[in-house]
Write a protein that binds this DNA or RNA. Structure first.
Lengths: 339, 339
DNA sequence: TGCGCCTCTTGGAACGATCCAGGGCGAGTG
DNA sequence: CACTCGCCCTGGATCGTTCCAAGAGGCGCA
């Protein structure tokens, strides 16, 4: 009985139309060089005519691969200036597409760092993960490795320098070093730091760039640093105290959120950012871009991070079982009116 | 020959262990009430013991459903204050999860509104789409409908009121009406509008809320409106001109980006937002939240939008082929220092 | 006891692709 | 001419699940 072409055309439909076998059509799609040119052309015509597209589910079942990459969405943070993830995600989607992968979003409670991973992993829904939430060490990395899951981390393994999984990170210290040097070049010699609490690896890294640059130029860091929570309010309070006690002429901050707090303090005191006091933030958020007079900010090369992440992913999923150690990228400085 | 349990356990493995057939295990998973309680318990124990999770690819192949929803990422817009999509995406992921779906991100050039949809659709990679980029009419809707694709739009079919696909939208006019009434209640009677060019349906909708509210209160709109591009610079220029020519005491803007432009103008002239001139934006972006003295802004209920979108999706993918016309949600006003 | 009905369970077939072993055919060689 | 070798192509088996039709068993009723 002739099968009615109710749904999408299958390999068999194409094969029949082209007068070849299923396998030959499969080869035409996946290994074109195995076919004789004229056969290939004939099959490709049939594919074109019928509008054949391989069925993903069937292919996934047979090849045990989904060509999906899982990305966990972290809870959106309001009342901060951190929307960096959006830029990264966008670039990741774009780069993955070029490599033949799609990005699958999933979620989980922030309390449980491995929630959500397990199901996707065991149901073979994704081939790999991109792990991004590695602020406070990364239990996911150990967990995923134990389960032999394939993954690439955006963020180095702070708490375990011996970790062997591939990772990509941005050199935060290099970023604040660029920012600090920029301020020194503009003639500042009393440069304060407002960063995060000591338990944040990333925060300490960024702070290190500031302090080592000051020291390299023979400038003092004593009394010039403050470590607070990542809120505008904290940034405002910290900068007020620093202005009174240490009289800096410039601030380097661990985030745009904190930098916004500094701008608040300056406005309260009738000081003009960029003219009276220089301010540099971190992340080059939209806030930094549109606030007046423009907030100078360290910009992470998130597009490049995504490219490197996908590159590592391809290495893991493709033939060569490479164990590339890690990739470190250097941020740039977006200079605006505040400095 | 006994099969070695190399990979993940399958239905057959569970069946063997529980001493039942494959189908019975399948029923235990998908239709538990078909089994006798003691059989069910036995099977569930076996599932537990082996850590069985159904293979997604096999299930997808058989049921012709992927339980994935496609969401196209629009190009990130820098130098504006519009990061609303992130909030929506997050909520969509969360809500979809509860409904048993995951979100698949894909991309495409902004020039070609249907790029990317086709492949996913024909390779049966996704069950449905969530269409969000409907600013200038929505060719995707007609295109998807023609291909019998399942989709829900965030954004009403502006250019085709007779469209029958389900959609969810936020009543922009209601938002600007709330904003305008808020200003009137604070004693303002000269309220200006800065919005987008006339070819933006959304822009005209938001403008309508402003103008109808002024008229309802017997206030004049003449010379009080400006339509420009959605940039900070445009907002600054437009507000400068309006201040000189129409002498408004308050501004309602079609976006936070434009409102930031107004704040720039005020700062240049030594005017204080909220004290001398009131300003209201639209989107409740992070910029509105952290800028000083806080930007009053219309906040879209994006979390609710996502809930309604998923609800519509479930309606389409589940049994009842409902054709719910559309859902309209009302925004709220986040009042801050600028008004 | 015999019959029918209902509940629960079973094994074969199918979804649509790729893997694998093997076969046809023409060219090259002795 | 017989034989071997490579190239190209074929058909069956397979991935793990769900659909389908039918079988086994228990119970009530005549």
């Amino acid at each position: 009985m002739a099968k009615l072409p109710t749904g999408a055309p299958t390999l068999a439909d194409v094969a029949e139309r082209a007068g070849v076998s299923r396998q030959t059509v499969s080869n035409a799609v996946n290994n074109p060089d195995l076919l004789r040119p004229d056969t290939l052309a004939r099959v490709q015509d049939a594919i074109e005519d019928l509008g054949y597209v391989p069925n993903r589910a069937a292919r996934n079942l047979r090849t045990r691969a989904s060509h999906l990459v899982g990305l966990r969405m972290n809870p959106a943070q309001e009342f901060t200036a951190n929307a960096a993830m959006d830029r990264f995600t966008h670039s990741l989607v774009e780069t993955s597409r070029e490599a033949g992968y799609h990005v699958l979003l999933f979620s989980g409670e922030p309390q449980d760092p491995v929630a959500g991973y397990d199901d996707l992993l065991r149901s073979t829904a994704v081939d790999a993960f991109v792990v991004t939430d590695t602020y406070l060490g990364n239990p996911q990395a150990a967990w995923l490795r134990e389960r032999r899951a394939t993954f690439v981390a955006f963020g180095r393994p702070w708490d375990d320098p011996g970790a062997t999984h591939p990772w990509v990170d941005v050199d935060g210290a290099a970023g604040t070093e660029i920012a600090t040097r920029h301020l020194i070049e503009r003639g500042h010699d009393r440069i304060a730091w407002i960063g995060w609490r000591k338990d944040s690896w990333i925060g300490e890294d960024r702070r290190a760039g500031w302090s080592r640059t000051l020291k390299a130029h023979g400038l003092s860091t004593t009394g010039m640093a403050s470590r607070v929570e990542d809120t505008v309010h904290s940034g405002r309070e910290a900068s007020a105290v620093l202005l009174d006690e240490a009289r800096p002429s410039a601030f380097v901050c661990a985030s745009d959120t904190l930098a916004m707090g500094v701008l608040h303090t300056l406005a309260e005191r009738g000081l003009h950012p960029g003219r009276d006091i220089a301010v540099v933030g971190f992340d080059d958020s939209q806030v930094a871009q549109v606030v007046q007079p423009g907030l100078t900010s360290v910009r992470q090369p998130l597009e490049l991070v995504a490219v490197e992440v996908v590159k590592a992913l391809e290495g893991l999923l493709g033939a060569p079982p490479v164990t590339n150690e890690g990739v470190m990228l250097t941020p740039t400085l977006a200079v605006r009116g505040s400095s």
